[in-house]
Simulated assay, not measured.
Amino acid sequence: MSIETTFRESLSELDVAVTRTTPGSCADAIADAADGKTIGVPLPEGLTLPPDVIDRPTNGDLETAETGVTPATLGIAETGSVHLESDRAGTELVSLYPQRHVAVLRTEDLVSDVATAIDRLGPDLRAGGSGVIATGPSATADMGSLVVGAHGPGEVHVVLVEAGR
């Protein structure tokens, strides 16, 4: 089974939607995955946000946005997780505040397992980089029954961009 197939199956188990697209159609795929007022941070070279996405969100935008769009630097197939950098652009905040998070990930940034992810992320983290590995919608059962969206997005959608720049 391919890494991408495993990643898609893991996302399905987490009730995370996934759209596969090309670099040229990335903005359209994001627009289709977004809902309501949408904020975002810059995407990697060759990928663009839809024109109606607020790409320099204010604190007020964070509070009122329904969808946040961020790049993911890595996807972990066995868990369906994505790595999001903590950076000056606000990637982590934009992924956490809105009800829906759209993570944009290139297929070449998929790895098979957590050990491989740590090997790949290690040099940047040891050099002072920071980030979060997010797995599906936010959920907690700390106070009894399961609550989705308690500490982050209640919905996640991954836009998986085919190789090519």
Rank of each mutant, 00 (worst) to 15 (best):
S112Q: 10
A163V: 11
D119V: 12
R56P: 10
V53Q: 04
V147E: 04
E162D: 13
A27S: 08
T91Q: 00
D124W: 07
D119L: 15
D109P: 04
E85F: 13
D87T: 04
T48Q: 02
E92M: 15
L146E: 12
A134N: 07
A117P: 12
A127I: 01
S86P: 05
E108P: 15
L47N: 01
E4D: 09
R100A: 00
I118P: 04
G131N: 07
F7K: 05
D119P: 13
V132M: 15
L105C: 10
V161Q: 02
R120H: 08
L11E: 05
R20N: 05
E92N: 14
A134W: 09
A127Q: 03
T73M: 13
P57M: 05
T58M: 03
A65W: 01
S81L: 11
Y97W: 13
S86Q: 06
V132L: 13
G24Q: 11
A65I: 03
C26W: 01
V41A: 00
A27T: 07
D15W: 15
T38G: 06
A163E: 14
P98C: 05
P23Q: 14
M1I: 11
S138N: 08
L43G: 00
Y97L: 12
E85R: 14
S25T: 08
S130D: 15
E155V: 13
H101Y: 00
D28L: 01
V148I: 12
P71W: 00
G40T: 06
T38C: 08
D35N: 10
T140K: 02
V156I: 11
S81D: 08
E85D: 15
G80L: 07
A77W: 04
G75Y: 04
D87N: 07
T38I: 06
P153Y: 02
R88A: 11
L121C: 09
A34S: 11
A150N: 01
V53L: 06
L96R: 01
T21S: 05
V18R: 04
L110M: 08
A34M: 05
V159G: 05
V148A: 00
D109Q: 13
C26N: 02
L146S: 12
G40Y: 00
T5W: 09
V156S: 07
T22F: 08
G149I: 06
L110D: 03
E85N: 14
P23Y: 12
A127L: 03
E4M: 04
I133T: 13
P57H: 01
S12C: 15
I76S: 04
R20Q: 09
M143V: 10
R120S: 09
R106V: 15
L121I: 09
T67P: 11
H83Q: 15
T5Q: 13
V102N: 02
D119W: 15
D52R: 02
S12R: 13
V111L: 02
I39W: 02
V94G: 03
A77V: 02
G128K: 00
T67M: 11
E78N: 09
G131K: 02
V16N: 06
L105V: 09
V159M: 06
L43A: 05
S95D: 04
G136T: 09
A34Q: 03
T67D: 10
R88P: 10
L93W: 11
P123Y: 13
S130T: 12
A34K: 06
E13T: 15
H83L: 13
E78Y: 08
C26R: 01
V102A: 01
G90M: 10
T73Q: 14
V94A: 06
L125K: 09
D15L: 14
A34I: 05
H151Q: 07
L105N: 04
V156K: 01
